[in-house]
């Protein structure tokens, strides 16, 4: 059952990825940007321009460019996507896949922590709100959910930097680190295994790096939790209220189940749909955490993508979108499997 579900979902995912690739490929070529001019500068001679265009393969018709990108009937050296090669960046000349493998875990790490923490905060808050609707806890949770559900996260990030770094420093409090990366330059970076700095430093037994990494992750994670928790709380609260009014909770009460048991009944039913929301956030933040990465100079995949986009680096844009879409689809799959594990109505 599970295996068949996973295979079917993966098959669908591959079709989606092909669709996304084609879409991005043509979208960036339809838009009126001139990557060659961006590379050689506006004052370049016609010859230099043509040479650059030839070197990038942009002198070919779109159909041939697509074949080169895919790696079938290619008339250029090097493999294509179908061989697992995303090509080289036009700006850094480094293989894109390698760069993405380096940058992706950075983003994954901080959004994973943020979503976990946000979920852990949201559950008790939503519970408290829903069990006594209309009371203070509920009002606070409600306004918070509405407020933090849509906020300029980049601005809050800046405010936190100003407050916890600049002001705390001024006041002589122990302050947050400067928003300049994942580790203090004085701390030796642990050898990369998973790419998650906290996990790698633990694996290497490098506690100094662990503490410093946690210190540097503190503010970016806090910023994300701040903006994400609102929506999760809002949804959990609505679910809980709906579930508590449901026929099966009323029936459980009339059958004389102890209130603790009724609480469990309600929790389980309210939790399942909220997990889907967490999955959607994952996908959204993978590409949407760009401003926060920029503020804290984390150097994740978001920062990589904005750099590539502003430089009109076509292969890098294509690669980034493809990888982000792939990771999102995998996460959705995992969430769906978890969802099915707690809700038997979801069938594979």
């Amino acid at each position: 059952m599970l295996l068949r579900f996973v295979t079917r979902r993966l098959a669908v995912a591959i079709i989606q990825l092909i669709g996304i690739s084609l879409f991005v490929f043509f979208m960036i070529r339809i838009l009126p940007a001139d990557p060659v001019a961006r590379l050689v500068g506006l004052n370049a001679t016609k010859e230099a321009y043509d040479l650059a265009a030839h070197n990038l393969g942009l002198d070919q018709p779109w159909g041939q460019q697509l074949l080169n990108y895919l790696g079938i009937y290619s008339n250029r050296p090097g493999d294509g996507v179908l061989q697992g090669d995303l090509g080289d960046s036009w700006v850094t000349s480094a293989p894109i896949l390698e760069e993405l493998v380096r940058f992706l875990p950075i983003t994954l790490e901080f959004i994973t922590y943020a979503l976990l923490i946000a979920f852990l905060i949201a559950v008790p808050m939503a519970m408290a709100a829903a069990t006594k609707p209309g009371k203070t806890a509920d009002r606070v949770t409600f306004v918070w959910g509405l407020f933090a559900g849509a906020q300029p996260e980049f601005w809050w990030g800046l405010m936190f930097v100003f407050f916890f770094f600049f002001q705390f420093h001024e006041w002589g409090f122990p302050s947050a680190p400067a928003p300049l990366g994942r580790l203090n330059p004085m701390v030796s970076e642990p050898h990369t295994i998973t790419g998650f700095i906290l996990i790698d430093s633990l694996l290497a037994g490098n506690f100094r790096a662990f503490l410093d990494g946690a210190h540097h992750l503190m503010l970016p994670v806090f910023t994300l939790v701040f903006v994400v928790s609102g929506a999760i709380i809002k949804m959990l609260r609505q679910n809980m209220i709906r579930v508590l009014q449901s026929d099966y909770i009323l029936y459980a009460r009339s059958a004389g189940l102890p209130s603790r048991q009724v609480g469990f009944y309600a929790m389980r039913a309210a939790m399942a749909p909220a997990m889907t929301l967490v999955g959607i956030f994952y996908g959204f933040l993978l590409g949407g955490a760009v401003p926060i990465e920029l503020i804290y100079s984390l150097g994740g995949i978001g920062e990589y993508s904005i750099r590539s986009i502003l430089a009109f680096d076509y292969p890098a844009i294509q690669g980034t979108v493809l990888i982000i879409a792939m990771v999102s689809l995998l996460i959705y799959l995992v969430i769906d499997i978890l969802h099915a594990a707690i809700d038997p109505r979801v069938t594979f």
Partner: peptide, 18 residues
């Protein structure tokens, strides 16, 4: 398919390249 795109990146690409 459009909806499954990463919103922020799509918007960045569309705006920056146009």
């Amino acid at each position: 398919l459009l909806q499954s795109f990463p919103v922020f990146i799509t918007a960045m690409v569309l705006v920056a390249l146009s």
